[in-house]
Every structure is written in structure tokens, then in C-alpha cells.
């Protein structure tokens, strides 16, 4: 069976695609002749001024996707197939030097943990150095720019924060500084990998508002990566990832209201069941209610990857790999249930 045959539905050339990922397959070498596939033929696009949410459990390949988009995969990772096009340029064939100029200025990442700031440098200088690397100007001018982005990110008392060391700031402030680092060069694509993990709900709301604003004012495209459906409410479109595959994709409202894939359904169900504040509650344990474990990435199931945990499982699911079926023009799911309908 030709593995490329049916994987193109999402990568249709649409004008205005800023990022187009096509059949991206990434594997990690864990030993001699021992590989685990982290991403299997992942295809998606992100348009200008669009917020795309990427939902999935930890270990499903979300962070690998983020690192692959930055071309910063660890040394033991290998991209065996596919392409990543940013604005029509293939990142995979780009020279390291050019990639470096792209990182931080065109594409930028807000990383999931709060230790992305050097504890021995003043945070203002750390933001300044991103700016200096890509858009050098007079120091005073750059400082003004940093003050204004601090203000825009809701960091009051810019002067103090500019001169503070990371340990003198709260978690939310540090995260905002990290976001300032990512946004200071006004990139066109921002990848936010769990940007709100370990923050309280107020800070979470604030940071999601920042992303919405950014999209509105600068036409920035944002790939919002999270394990928590509530965080992704800020998105326009949702991609659901399971075991290195995109299992469902569609507009946010449609996916939330009519989830097509059994995995999405289970995920949303336990999230709403546990969410005490309905919006932006941090449901770190919400995934425990899907029975079973995610599959071992090293072993390849012959059928649907979700079948051991699926409540709608049919006999055929163990032998046939489902492809992405279009449910409506924009909504598709990787589940054999829909094959019968076609």
C-alpha cells in the first residue's frame, strides 16, 4: 500500500498558507536498529492570522512537531519523509545559517517550562539579545521597544522587570518575559508549546488574550499546543493528535460540539466532566479517565492506533489502518466508522 496515497487531504494548496506541513514523519533512534516513530505522516497547514490548536496527550508527538517546525530536533531524531514549507520555502533543505536567522525572527517558540531564562542574566538583557541578534538598533531604541512589549504583555513596572533577575519574578511574569522574547521580533508564526502549563487560571486567561490580540494586531499565525482542551478555546481550528498521527481536524466549534473521533470524544468528555470552572480550568488529570495507556511508540499496530482503548471498536479496526475521512468540507477524522458512509 502506498503510504502517501491518502495523506494529502489536509495539505491542499490554499493560498495564504503560511506554514504547510506535508507527510512529516519523524523517528527517534533509541539504539542500533531500534527506532520509534514519533510522527507518522503528519500534514496540516496554518494560515496567516490563524490560531491553530494542537490537542493531544503528553507523548503523542506535540513537542516533536514543535521542534521539527523550528528545525531543532535532537541529534537522534530523523525526518524520514515529508516537507515543512514556511511561506513556500522548504525548511528541511535550508542551510543551518539561514535557519538560524529565521528562528526568533520569522518563527518563534514559547516553550513549556519556565526555566528558559538564564538565572544569571537580567531578563531585560535576555530579551534585548534576541532583538540584537535579528534587528540590531541603538540600545536606547531597543530598550524602548522592549518596554512597550512588556507593557503590551501586561507587565506593569517595566523598569523593575527589565532589571530583574528571573528568580525575582513570579511564574506568570517569567512566562510573559519568555513570550516577550518570542514576540519581540514580530515573527509571523508563533509556536506556543503548553504556554500556560503550571500557571493559575488568571494568568492563563491573560496569556491567551495576548495571543488573540497579537493575531488581531499583527496578523501573526499561532500554533497553540496543549493537552488541555480548555486552553485551546482560543483557537480557530483544532488538530487532535494521537500516537504521532493527526486523528481529527476541523474548526474549533465543530470539533468541540460534534467530535467525530472516539478519542476526541473521550478527551472532551473527561475534560468537561472535571472542569469546575468551565473556562480555562487547568485539568491536569483529565486524561486519566480514558481507559488504557497510549501505545508504545516502538511497536506498530496493524490497525487503528486507538483501537485498544476505543469504545466504538469494531472487528475491522484491528486489521485496517484508517485514513482521514472527510466528514464535511473542513472537518475530518481518522476513524473507520466513517468509511462505511462513503
Amino acid at each position: 500500500m502506498d503510504p502517501n496515497r491518502h495523506e494529502v487531504s489536509l495539505a491542499r494548496p490554499i493560498d495564504g498558507n503560511l506554514l504547510r506541513v506535508c507527510n512529516l514523519t519523524v523517528s527517534y533512534r533509541l539504539g542500533p536498529a531500534y527506532e520509534s516513530t514519533a510522527l507518522k505522516q503528519v500534514s496540516f497547514t496554518v494560515n496567516c492570522a490563524e490560531i491553530v490548536g494542537l490537542l493531544g496527550e503528553s507523548g503523542c508527538g506535540k513537542s516533536t512537531t514543535a521542534l521539527a517546525l523550528m528545525q531543532m530536533l535532537p541529534a537522534n531524531a530523523r525526518i524520514s519523509m515529508g516537507s515543512i514549507q514556511l511561506d513556500g520555502c522548504n525548511l528541511l533543505s535550508m542551510k543551518e545559517d539561514r535557519l538560524r536567522r529565521l528562528r526568533g525572527s520569522e518563527t518563534s517558540i514559547v516553550y513549556q517550562d519556565s526555566e528558559t531564562l538564564n538565572p544569571m542574566m537580567r531578563v531585560g538583557n535576555q530579551v534585548m539579545e534576541v532583538l540584537r541578534a535579528h534587528k540590531p538598533a541603538k540600545t536606547a531604541q531597543m530598550r524602548d521597544e522592549i518596554y512597550s512589549i512588556f507593557a503590551a504583555l501586561g507587565l506593569k513596572d517595566c523598569d523593575r522587570i527589565y532589571r530583574a533577575f528571573p528568580h525575582q519574578l513570579s511564574g506568570g511574569q517569567r512566562r510573559r518575559v519568555a513570550i516577550a522574547q518570542a514576540l519581540i521580533c514580530k515573527p509571523r508564526l508563533v509556536i506556543a508549546d503548553e504556554p500556560t502549563s503550571s500557571l493559575d487560571s488568571e494568568a492563563t486567561t491573560g496569556i491567551l488574550d495576548i495571543f488573540r490580540q497579537l493575531r488581531a494586531t499583527h496578523n501573526t499565525a499561532i500554533l497553540l499546543i496543549s493537552h488541555d482542551p480548555e486552553t485551546l478555546r482560543a483557537a480557530d481550528r483544532l488538530l487532535v493528535m494521537y500516537a504521532g498521527e493527526i486523528v481529527e481536524s476541523g474548526p474549533l466549534n465543530e470539533v468541540f460540539e460534534h467530535p467525530a473521533h472516539p478519542y476526541t470524544r473521550a478527551l472532551l468528555q473527561c475534560s468537561t466532566r472535571q472542569a469546575a470552572p468551565p473556562m480555562f480550568g487547568v485539568n491536569r488529570h483529565s486524561l486519566a479517565c480514558i481507559p488504557g495507556e497510549p501505545p508504545d511508540p516502538c511497536e506498530v499496530l496493524p490497525g487503528c492506533g486507538f483501537s485498544p482503548r476505543c469504545s466504538n471498536r469494531a472487528e475491522i479496526c484491528d486489521s485496517l489502518r484508517p485514513r482521514l475521512f472527510e466528514i464535511s468540507g473542513v472537518h475530518s477524522a481518522r476513524c473507520l466508522q466513517y468509511e462505511a458512509r462513503e
Binding site: 526568533g104 525572527s105 517550562d113 526555566e115 541578534a133
Partner: peptide
């Protein structure tokens, strides 16, 4: 291996 080194690299540090 520190996160801030990785982060600085992600922001385009040589």
C-alpha cells in the same frame, strides 16, 4: 543541556 541554552538557540542564537 540547560533549558535556557536550548531556548536561546530557538531564538536564533549562534
Amino acid at each position: 543541556e540547560r533549558h535556557y541554552v536550548l531556548a536561546a538557540r530557538l531564538f536564533g542564537g549562534s
